[in-house]
Every structure is written in C-alpha cells, then in structure tokens.
C-alpha cells in the first residue's frame, strides 16, 4: 500500500487534544485509515485514551471501549469471540501504550497470544508513562531521564536497558509480529495491511516519539522516528508465521546523532553513550546473525 492509496476518510477525527507533534496520534490516525470502518477499538489507560476521548467526547468514529490497564488484550479477545458468534465481519484492535504492554498489560497480552485470539494488538511505544507525567516504563531506553529515573549524584537516567517486547511476542509463536516506525511510511503501511488481512493474533509495535516527554522540538517527531531506525536504536522487522525478516537495514550511524536531539539524553556522559552504543551493536549482531542462520 502506498500513501496515495490511503482512504480519505478520517476515522480518527481532528479536534483531539494531543500535544502538538504527537507521535501516538499519527499512529492512531493512520492505523484507523488502514483498518477501515468495520473495526472496534479497545484502549487501556494511555495517552491515546485521554486525548482521543474523555467521556462523552471521542475522536474515534468507530465503536470503542476504555478498559483497564491490565486487560486490554483479553477484553479485545472477548469481543472478537462475541463478534464471531454473532457472525459479524469486524476486526478488533487494541491500542496500548508501552506501559500497558511491556509492564502492566503483559499477562493478559501473553494469555491472548497463547490462545491465538483473533485480534490486532498495536503498541505505540513512546518509551515511558507519558500520560501520568513521564515515569519510566520497561520500554524506556538506557540513560533516558524520566521523573522516576532522575539525573542526580547517584544515578543519571535509567540504569537498565529497554525490554524487547516484540521478541517476547515472537516467542509465543503467533501468526504475525512486526515492528514499525512512523518515520518509514511505506513499511508501516505494509505491515498494517498485512496485519489487517491475516487471522489470529497479530502484534504490531510502533515507535512513536513524544515531544513532551523526550524534550525536543515538536516539528522533529518524524525525523526522530527515522533517526532511531538509522542508528539502530529501533529495528524494523517482521515475523510472519515464524519466518523472520528484516524490513529495513539500518545504516548504523552513531547513536549520538539520535540522542543529541533529545533533552532526555542531554546529561549523558561519554561512558554512558558508549554503553548504549555497545548495546545497539550487540543487538544488531544478534538480529543479523539470526537471519543468516
């Protein structure tokens, strides 16, 4: 699918209250364009729930439900089964943030994946709990400042590495797992389309920069989405019925290109940057080794 083939209908309407330059809003808008009208949407607590719809107002033009933080996947699974029983042809999509996926929603997500429920699960990853005011999540990268990993004398940003949720999902042997970034539109659209047309449990992990929490100029949202892939901080791949494929080979430019734009990494010492670079190199070696073997 190309950009020009996208539907003109806005199923995620203008007038939502996201911060200017929100990456999550781009994910929701484009995903709804691809999935179309016959979709039900499920949200655990996340930014998208708040800016996309505080009762009784809503930006989604499809049936939607706000569910608890820990059970978005299982609620979506229940509705998907109900729709099947009723004989309706509709897709069920759960939109969760990285906190609702990597930390709080993990158990229900894992359960739904194990049962191979017929749902699409989209995690839009802004690498912290942005809705409640930038607290660290399992998905926060090494060295990043958040309000719960402050920069002080004893620690300077997060001390451990980012949790690799897509790989955990791949370990569940589900039909489709993919990572995407809003910086690569065609790749993102292809993956959304594939997820739409398949059956069974489909997991999409989309990289969605957040200008408020990452401390950068809102105009650079897409640029940062591109840089993250170029330097290897985020890898674009998909795993379709067990076949693993890298969809975009990174240039592997130094991570400093990526981190210098963001205020959350401003404090980082050379040593910390080296640690992060080491993590990126190691991760990439592991991934590229897998595709060869």
């Amino acid at each position: 699918m190309k950009i020009k083939d996208l539907s003109l209908e806005e199923l995620f309407t203008s007038g939502h209250t996201a911060c200017p330059g929100c990456g999550g809003a781009i994910v929701a808008r484009i995903a709804m364009k691809v999935f179309g009208k016959n979709t039900c949407a499920y949200f655990p607590a996340n930014c998208l729930l708040v800016f996309g719809g505080t009762y009784p107002y809503n930006a989604f033009k499809v049936p939607y439900l706000h569910v608890l933080f820990e059970n978005s996947a299982v609620c979506a699974a229940g509705i998907s089964r109900a729709l099947k029983k009723l004989g309706r042809d509709a897709k069920t999509v759960a939109f969760a943030g990285d906190g609702g996926t990597a930390d709080i929603g993990m158990q229900s997500l894992s359960g739904a994946a194990e049962r191979n429920e017929d749902i699409i699960y989209i995690c839009y990853d802004n690498e912290a709990y942005m809705n409640t005011g930038i607290q660290r999540s399992g998905s926060t990268p090494f060295g990043a400042w958040t309000t719960t990993t402050p920069v002080g004398k004893k620690i300077a940003g997060k001390e451990v590495f980012k949790k690799d949720v897509p790989r955990i999902m791949m370990a569940h042997d589900v039909p489709y797992v993919a990572t995407a970034s809003i910086g690569y539109p065609n790749d993102f659209l292809n993956k959304l389309e594939k997820a739409r047309d398949m059956k069974g449990f489909r997991y999409l992990h989309v990289f969605a920069p957040c200008p408020t929490g990452w401390r950068y100029d809102p105009a650079k949202t897409v640029e940062i989405g591109k840089l993250a892939v170029e330097c290897g901080m985020w890898t674009l791949y998909e795993c379709e019925n067990g076949v693993f494929r890298i969809t975009k080979k990174p240039k592997l430019s130094p991570v400093t290109d990526y981190i210098k734009l963001q205020g959350r990494f401003r404090h980082m010492t050379e040593e910390q940057v080296d640690t992060l670079q080491g993590w990126v190199t190691e991760k990439w070696e592991k991934i590229s080794g897998e595709t060869k073997g």
Partner: peptide, 28 residues
C-alpha cells in the same frame, strides 16, 4: 500522512488545503 491532527485536506488529486481550525502548529 504525517499530520497528527489530520488537518491537511486533499482537494481532488492536485491540491492540498490546510484546515486552520484544527492545526496546532507543531511544524511536522
């Protein structure tokens, strides 16, 4: 494609129009 607000409208296949009612001025 990138507008988070969806405030850039396609008028036919040849023109784009910015809807200033919704534009938050992010600059993407």
């Amino acid at each position: 494609f990138y507008c988070p607000e969806g405030c850039i409208e396609r008028v036919g296949n040849t023109t784009l129009k910015i809807n200033y009612d919704y534009c938050k001025g992010c600059g993407i």
